[in-house]
Design a protein around this nucleic acid. Structure first.
Lengths: 337, 337
DNA sequence: CTAGATCACTGAACCGGGTAAGTTGGCAGA
DNA sequence: TCTGCCAACTTACCCGGTTCAGTGATCTAG
């Protein structure tokens, strides 16, 4: 089946290609009557401008890129990315931008993908997640002058916009809440230590614990997977000075930790209180439902997409704090027995 | 920063644009010596062909599309789609095809997206999931002659390729296993009834139950969400003739069912055995770990991508059964007390 | 020794939009 | 009546690849 082009419309309307282009793009240069006629014809024959032709002349690809740098088995289960993606879509779809996805194995490979996308003019900008301290991707993005938005931080990203949530405030709130319940021995199972937001959380956790005079607080590093979450939890629970509450850096590890506690015959929240980070449906799914540090991930994604579109339009964008993180108490936290 | 084009390479190599194109694409028409020289220059200056220009002349966009038709809150938690996506990527990345994603609200909107993508020449083919009986998307894809692969079935998709797994065999195996353990009252919580594979499973479930002489078997329809899974489970467990085993159509509902059982004071697997469909890490994360009907979703996705690339290349592709589904027994199933 | 084939390459058209520069026709003002 | 000006177009070229029809030069066969 032949796709209609502006030439087809021009022929039917009895005008030139140029007039059709002006009419469809809301440019001056055609009368209102002609514009309406042209738009009607375009609608009638179901015209969509060839994105390649448009990108070739106009320089906009009307697509943004996202790379996912996690092994398949983690990607699947972590609700975070899908939440983010559906947030992007809400914004991008409205502006008829497409989202191009690429799964990669390492930040180095991610850099290659950025270079390729840029060279191919496939995308107008990228969304960067899992930002690290001294991230290798930042200088490349600046060199290529590829519009970008970094999710996570706050940290040093030079001229590149970033969106972050107040992780430090959130973990402070969680610790205060646990202390108010009567907990003294609070542990934490963290995500990948190299990531910037993990470092922000660890620092804030140490600070609030110190300021509240808590001793024996410990952060066990893990990697967001269920397996590592179980392992870290086991290590914490077999020790002599068992914590009475554990804060997990994501929901998956928290659920895994809950299972370990149950398997060891500990009652949650009687013997152990559990707080999860990121409140996905997963948290309400298990028994007892998990107290969580909630934030609206979709809204977070939508905001990131908006900022990126601004950056693509050449508008200067800066350092934005998105949405509030708030503690949602559920059945997994209680005063210690 | 200026992007290098073939004209730049041509100038530096002292040949014409055409020669460069032949050289880089492995076409005959240049000597080996010249080809090597041109490729070396391209590498040196970091050349990537402009995808828009290529798509415009060559007719290939080197991208495929995937629409996700689930509300955000389900998308996030269901490991299925991410597993599928990482499978696609493994294949597509190797052939340097891009994956374009769009979240939609309904099959009708999906049809619109297909039409737009086709009109814009944005993609070379699409992967269709969640296929229904008499799916509205099938005739549109045939009308547009858009290369496609349908995941799920088997069913009537006309000339469009499909990939499916032996769901009927899998559920038969699960029922036989439960009966062998001594269960007589087996219930099932299904996914969305309109979907083709749900119907396939329901039919097979009814047949095997009938042939084994089981009575009081019941399928409660749900929608893959945890909430519906809980509701359905509660309904089954408060009845007088309580089932001793439940088969769930996905992992999320199974986990929700487990929580409901625990909340009602029933022991799993003592009072209730649970079988989940699709063995994501979620199943091993909870306590007890769930017996599951496993299949390699990534491999499934990779196979689908391969078939789609074949379809795009004009190779005739048909009806393919992918991978085996097999029962992975874990702690959630045991003989009834 | 020459017609014909083959090789290695060039030049130009083309894909389908965007857009700067040029061309009408109509009307106002001097 | 002529100039000037503006709206409403048209013309023509650009973007960066692909591809087809040449074009010399070299090779081969009769």
């Amino acid at each position: 089946m032949k796709r209609p082009t502006i030439a087809d419309i021009a022929r039917r309307a009895g005008v030139s290609k140029g007039a059709v282009s002006y009419a469809l793009n809301g440019q001056p240069g055609v009368s209102e009557a002609t514009r309406k006629r042209i738009i009607a014809i375009a609608q009638e024959i179901g015209f969509n401008a060839n994105s390649a032709a448009r990108a070739l002349s106009g320089a906009r690809a009307r697509a943004v890129g996202l790379t996912l740098c996690r092994p398949a088995r983690i990607l699947g289960i972590e609700p975070w990315f899908m939440g983010l993606i559906s947030g992007f879509e809400a914004e991008l779809g409205a502006q008829s931008y497409a989202l191009t996805l690429q799964v990669v194995a390492s930040p180095e490979q991610e850099v290659e993908v950025y270079r390729r996308w840029w060279g191919e003019r496939r995308i107008d900008g990228v969304i960067v997640t899992d930002i690290r301290a001294d991230d290798v991707r930042i200088p490349v993005l600046q060199e290529l002058q590829l519009p970008a938005v970094v999710i996570g931080g706050p940290g040093d990203t030079g001229s590149i916009a970033q969106i972050w949530s107040d992780d430090a405030g959130a973990i402070t709130e969680a610790v205060r809440y646990l202390v108010a319940l009567g907990h003294h021995r609070i542990a934490r199972v963290s995500g990948v230590p190299g990531l910037l937001h993990t470092q922000v959380r660890t620092k804030a956790f140490d600070e609030i614990c110190a300021s509240l005079g808590l001793e024996n607080t410990i952060t066990v590093p893990a990697d967001y997977t269920g397996e590592e979450g179980s392992r870290a939890t086991r290590r914490l629970l077999i020790g002599g000075d068992r914590p009475s509450a554990i804060i997990y850096d994501n929901d998956v590890m928290a659920v895994a930790g809950l299972a370990v506690a149950q398997e060891m015959g500990l009652s949650v929240p009687g013997d152990l209180s559990i707080v999860a980070w990121d409140d996905s449906p997963l948290c309400s799914l298990v028994h007892p439902p998990l107290t969580a540090l909630s934030r609206d991930i979709s809204a977070y994604g939508a905001q990131a997409a908006r900022e990126l579109l601004n950056a693509i339009d050449g508008k200067r964008v800066g350092n934005v704090e998105a949405g509030r993180v708030h503690l949602t108490p559920r059945g997994s936290t209680a005063p210690p027995r």
